[in-house]
Design a protein around this nucleic acid. Structure first.
Lengths: 245, 245
DNA sequence: AGGCGATCATCTGTATACACTATAGTCATG
DNA sequence: CATGACTATAGTGTATACAGATGATCGCCT
């Protein structure tokens, strides 16, 4: 099939110049691509990922595909069984609950460490900006959809700044592990009531003050409670979805 | 080099029959082998693992070696950088501290879940056996070395039974992630004072009773305190080592 | 002499061919 | 008709060759 070879070369040439500063290597690009697809729910839960199909579909060989799949399995998005390949991890609701309880503990610890270790000027600015933007978004009356997307962004920014301030790779890994569920991607935040979001935004303010004031225990407790409230919302919406399915 | 090919065939033939029911595949075997080597500290911290050397040394091709390394990187034992390969993760003491605090929270959660979900008859038996053996080992006067190894085993058994009873893969992953540090392998328990071990064994008894009695909160608190006491011992011994180096 | 760039060795990244395993379907047999 | 072994096929496991990147060494130019 000489035509296929041509197609490959063309595609490579067209995709290499601009779009991926991140994916210096094909494996890295595939990992990112597949992770996003998994979080977006593009593969059915529990379904098997066929290496040959994927490599044809994405126009690379099996080697980088396998590498990417191994990485994603390491991250917990996939499960691997010898001689049977990779399947999309399907977490029962009970596991989602545990993940959020774990995440509450982990983020609480992160908040405490951030408080103990102090905020850099840059972190402080980022947090303050996230809070201010949140105030603005929630006070104005906007399209629900726009409001939601904007708030999801700064929510992400707020939390990851706290994690960074904790200065622990390990802790970061754990938090990310708890977030990496094919079901509960960040955009699930959408499903919430506006009142819930306002409440949580108030919690962000309190957490910020506790961290800034170096009150470790206070920061830890506030963050735990904050994440647990997110858990309640998620579980509520998942239960609704499961029930209606 | 035809001689080399012969050697390979011979070695494969001699190693396939008996020794590895676990390693159904070369990758799996390599993963296990390398993980053990890393936890045992056989590779210097921060050192780079050369795929070609490893594959020659272990008499396999690079392919399964790479697979194993990817898995271990996913587990956090190695770090991977594009085009630069895998290096043994070197955790500063502060990270070890965080890991143990995280693990205390995670194992606490596991203990609570185990209490809430109840113990199977088999789990109960395993725990009781671990406790009884611990009593025996600690009461008799034995060679320090033997005593230590025996206790390490049943300690492992006790904890992993609790994790299993929690019935959460996710939680298991987190706990294992916190244990997987090139420094702080299980056998570090060796370095401890006998008095510390006795104290911890008493804690095992208390935890068992709390779990058996379905007292979730109590179990969680006891387990947290238990793991934190291990942290103190580990940190003490690591600090001593770092100081003397 | 010192900085700078080309060249080369080394190692990782990828493609591909082949070997092995698992599974489903078929056929024969009780 | 049910059950068992056999075979065919699809898909993963591994080896190997080659391509691309990285880093060091050596020579050149200033």
């Amino acid at each position: 099939m000489p035509a296929e070879a041509d197609r490959k070369r063309l595609q490579r040439a067209s995709q290499s110049p601009a779009p991926e500063p991140q994916g210096s290597t094909r494996s890295a690009w595939l990992t990112e691509h597949l992770r996003q697809a998994l979080l977006d729910g593009k593969f059915p839960l529990g379904s098997r990922l066929n290496e040959v199909h994927l490599s044809h579909q994405l126009d690379v060989s099996r080697t980088p595909v396998r590498a990417a799949l191994h990485v994603l399995a390491g991250e917990g998005l996939l499960r691997y069984h010898a001689n049977k390949g990779f399947v999309v991890r399907d977490l029962p609701l009970s596991e989602v609950v545990v993940a959020y309880e774990m995440r509450a503990l982990a983020e609480g610890l992160a908040a405490r460490l951030a408080a103990e270790r102090g905020l850099s000027d840059e972190s402080r600015r980022t947090l303050e900006q996230a809070l201010a933007e949140g105030d603005a978004i929630l006070s104005r009356r906007l399209n629900r959809e726009v409001q939601r997307a904007a708030y999801a962004n700064l929510n992400e920014s707020f939390h990851s700044t706290i994690h960074a301030a904790a200065q622990s790779d390990l802790l970061n890994d754990v938090v990310r592990a708890c977030q990496r569920m094919p079901q509960a991607a960040a955009h699930n935040v959408m499903a919430f009531e506006l009142a819930d979001v306002r409440e949580r935004h108030k919690a962000h303010h309190q957490i910020y003050l506790a961290v800034l004031g170096r009150e470790g225990q206070q920061a830890e407790m506030l963050m735990r409670a904050h994440v647990l409230s997110v858990k309640s919302s998620i579980v509520r919406s998942l239960a609704r979805r499961d029930g209606s399915t």
